[in-house]
Design a protein around this nucleic acid. Sequence first.
DNA 1: ATCAGCATGTAAGGCGTTACATGATTCA
DNA 2: TGAATCATGTAACGCCTTACATGCTGAT
Lengths: 181, 181
Amino acid sequence: MGKDRKIDMVILGLLSHEDLTGYDIKKQIDEAIGFFWKGSFGSIYPALGEMEKAGQIKKLPDRSSGSREKIKYRITKDGKNALKEWLKEEQSSNDLKYETLLKLYFGGVEKPEVSIHNIELFEEKIKADLNVLKWYKSNLEKVLDNNEHLHYYLTVTFGIDTYEAYLKWCARSKKLLKERV
Amino acid sequence: MGKDRKIDMVILGLLSHEDLTGYDIKKQIDEAIGFFWKGSFGSIYPALGEMEKAGQIKKLPDRSSGSREKIKYRITKDGKNALKEWLKEEQSSNDLKYETLLKLYFGGVEKPEVSIHNIELFEEKIKADLNVLKWYKSNLEKVLDNNEHLHYYLTVTFGIDTYEAYLKWCARSKKLLKERV
DNA sequence: ATCAGCATGTAAGGCGTTACATGATTCA
DNA sequence: TGAATCATGTAACGCCTTACATGCTGAT
């Protein structure tokens, strides 16, 4: 029941590293944690408003002389405490919604070619994303002495390890299905 | 925009195999596809009502002589077509929301012990679930000649392969973090 | 007798997406 | 000059979860 909104923690987490605008936050979600988390403007901007009211973040004065408004936010002490409390909560919900697996699970009602094709679509997407993750990894390896970067590195290697497991599984699954064609 | 409800496809998929009550459907979601999909009564029962109106499923007469109502549903031809159409759609959304990874990504604001503990909690859960999946796998291996069971088997091996990759990653990540303690 | 599990459903409300609305800036 | 990107925000709406309400059945 309520006030369990994870987008708040994403925002606090990103702001704990540097001051950002709503637009920046959206970009960082897509780029840095996009392979295991999503967020849209329609959830970010309202959250920023409420969190400012709650005192977890504050607006920084806009110095960009008369030009277009551009609102940078900074995390407050309250915000940092909320972030740390959340990190220490034992409960974590790890929800996957794998439509590809759903289609595979029910794929028996169609010809094996349909399932093979669905696996191939999945495989292509994973291969592309894996390349991006490997590029992130090689950049992060240069700065591993930094504690923050070590944490980024660990999430990236999680992605790489699981994606590589996916690809091996794809190859074996396609082989098994092709025997039925 | 709208009519994109995946719970409908889950229901159609399960009913394509056998007639089921809403309660049965809930159980099968939890047991058979629980590691990559979720569903609650609050989404299942309303969906059943709407899908019956739409003609994708139909109620079977309740033969249980005067006792408590128990509504079994059977998929119709329309329902089977909708299921097959969905299987052939190229677009699939594979969304993960890994709160554990989120906590790890932002874990740099706390002591490494906090991240290590979070990884250990994740690890324990995965180990328990992995045992269940292995048990499913050994059962399915006996009946792989059946086309439906092959598809179930493939999703189960997906779970096993990724969970084993998770565990390897957990071990390596804990080691790296312990060097910082 | 009592408790867990079977069984169906509704209500309130949170969360989040998509689409819309608006306009500035930058670069080719 | 036109397109892409930067930038903020609102509105409508869909989806889903949690909690509630109700009662039967079977095992201990």
